[in-house]
């Protein structure tokens, strides 16, 4: 499946690989939320490093995606780290950062997944 998830300790990693639709993303999120292993204090990462369709997406698509994810973001502390993997995707995820702000979600783009994890851990202000 092009949109899948992995739960690794506190990290909920939404992997978008190859080709996928917005429905695929939402379905993967819904499955993850129903997963008994989904942590209450989840730290969310959207990993687009291996996406092939992202480069074809338009700014309005990114805005739409950001809005949809923001609507679900209460399940992961309203924060989302974006692992881009390359410069183009980084630039696009920077756009998504801005788009998500008005929807109440804080997003940050990074090149590597390690940077994304580090940001989530260091900026986590939730009481555990």
């Amino acid at each position: 499946m092009a949109a899948s998830y992995e739960i690794k300790q506190r990290f909920f990693i939404l992997r978008l690989e190859d080709s996928y639709t917005m429905d695929d993303i939402l379905n993967a999120c819904e499955q993850a939320f129903r997963d008994p292993d989904f942590p209450d204090d989840a730290l969310a990462i959207m990993d687009v490093r291996h996406s092939t369709v992202l480069k074809e997406r338009r700014p309005e698509d990114l805005r739409f995606m950001a809005g949809k994810l923001a609507a679900l973001s209460s399940r992961f502390g309203s924060r989302l780290a974006l692992a881009a993997g390359n410069q183009l995707y980084y630039g696009m995820m920077r756009m998504a950062e801005v788009f998500s702000e008005s929807s109440g979600m804080t997003a940050r783009a990074f090149i590597t997944i390690e940077e994304a994890e580090a940001w989530l851990l260091t900026s986590d202000r939730r009481v555990r």
């Binding site: 480069k55 700014p59 410069q87 183009l88 980084y90 630039g91 756009m95 788009f99």
Partner: peptide, 15 residues
């Protein structure tokens, strides 16, 4: 890169 060319004038696109 060619992929970025179409986005360089888009607001908020930055590398």
């Amino acid at each position: 890169p060619e992929d970025e060319m179409k986005l360089v004038f888009e607001p908020f696109f930055t590398t």
